[in-house]
Simulated scan of single mutants.
Amino acid sequence: MSEQAPLVSVIVPNYNYAASLELCLRALQAQTYAPIELLVVDDHSTDDSVAVARRLGVRVVQTERNMGVAGARNLGVAHAGGEILVFVDSDVAAYPDAVEVAVAMLAADPRLGAVSSIHDPEPLIRDSLVEDYRALQYYYWTASSEGSISFLFPALVAMPRRVYDEIGPFNTQLRETEEVDYGHRLTQRYDMVLTSAVRSRHDHDDRLGKLLRKLYRRGRARVPLYAQRRRFACGFETSSRAGGSLAALAALAALPVAAPLGPAGAMLPAAALAVSIIADLGMYRFVLRRRGPLFLLYFGVVHFVVNVTIAAGVAAGVVRWLFSARFRRLYEPDLHVRPSAAGEAAT
């Protein structure tokens, strides 16, 4: 890079991810781009995350209490001096040229407000079959959304500081869905892309219970956003995938009704299950080619459970939306620009 290359501030929000943090930071220290300043915002971790970062010589900013990832990102920006901001989650390892490619893309198009990475279909740390499932599922859904998006993928995203300053901070009220909100706000003024040219690996959830709880909460939290804006985000969470999740839940709900009806009744859950499978047929073909029929069977069972969980979360969100005024107010515009008031200390 030339001496005139802009300073890039890489901000790594972290909460109890010591297991992957070293891989994340070493990958960032090996970037081909210069100049870079690297900053970890430790969100009141209870593990040895801070010791890991300090051992690698990385600057650390610590919060006085847990703020959530939105607040941690905002705090990182407050301590950053770069013209370009790169947010990297502490369970993500970027390829060596990731920052260089992202900065070049932003420089080539002034209307481009953010560039997000597509993670590899192989997990950063392989711990379980659940993690294999999640890596493949997440990869296919993101890769099939490559291009212009309105759903921000902040696990590895680059944006000009001027864009962040114009759009405002991440909404700290939204602990499960701040990225969808931020993407919507950003794309009112700028383009945003998801690209496989910026590559990374992600340490996905390796336990099914943890994954399901996260997806349930996210499904529930999406309801106010989509209800007020009356449309899905462009990329990842599409109407067809939402339909697939609802069809899976319908197939499960139809079983008690179908049982007394005999063979004819079995058509109800079977038809709903078929709709759910068709909604993600391309993904199943991808998994079959990559891992073979035996793993596909496992993948299909887990994905059915995931779909049911997402749909149940959405249903719970709809009920909450109907009966909770506070829940409906989460996405009112005046909340978008309120940074967290949590205290912090730089070390």
Rank of each mutant, 00 (worst) to 15 (best):
12 V>D: 01
16 N>F: 03
18 A>K: 06
24 C>A: 04
27 A>V: 04
28 L>S: 09
36 I>Y: 01
50 V>E: 13
54 R>T: 11
58 V>W: 01
58 V>H: 00
62 Q>R: 15
69 V>E: 00
70 A>Q: 04
72 A>P: 10
85 L>H: 04
99 V>W: 01
101 V>D: 00
103 V>F: 00
105 M>I: 08
111 R>T: 10
122 E>A: 06
124 L>E: 00
125 I>P: 00
128 S>Y: 11
147 G>M: 04
149 I>G: 11
149 I>M: 03
150 S>R: 02
154 P>T: 01
154 P>D: 03
157 V>I: 03
165 D>W: 01
172 T>V: 06
175 R>A: 13
180 V>C: 11
182 Y>V: 01
184 H>F: 14
192 M>K: 08
203 D>E: 07
207 R>L: 14
212 L>Y: 02
218 R>A: 14
222 R>K: 14
224 P>K: 03
226 Y>C: 05
228 Q>H: 15
232 F>E: 09
237 E>R: 12
243 G>H: 11
245 S>I: 12
250 A>W: 07
250 A>P: 05
251 A>I: 05
262 G>A: 05
263 P>V: 12
270 A>M: 09
275 V>E: 07
281 L>A: 13
290 R>I: 10
297 L>G: 11
311 A>R: 02
316 A>Y: 07
330 L>R: 10
333 P>L: 12
334 D>W: 15
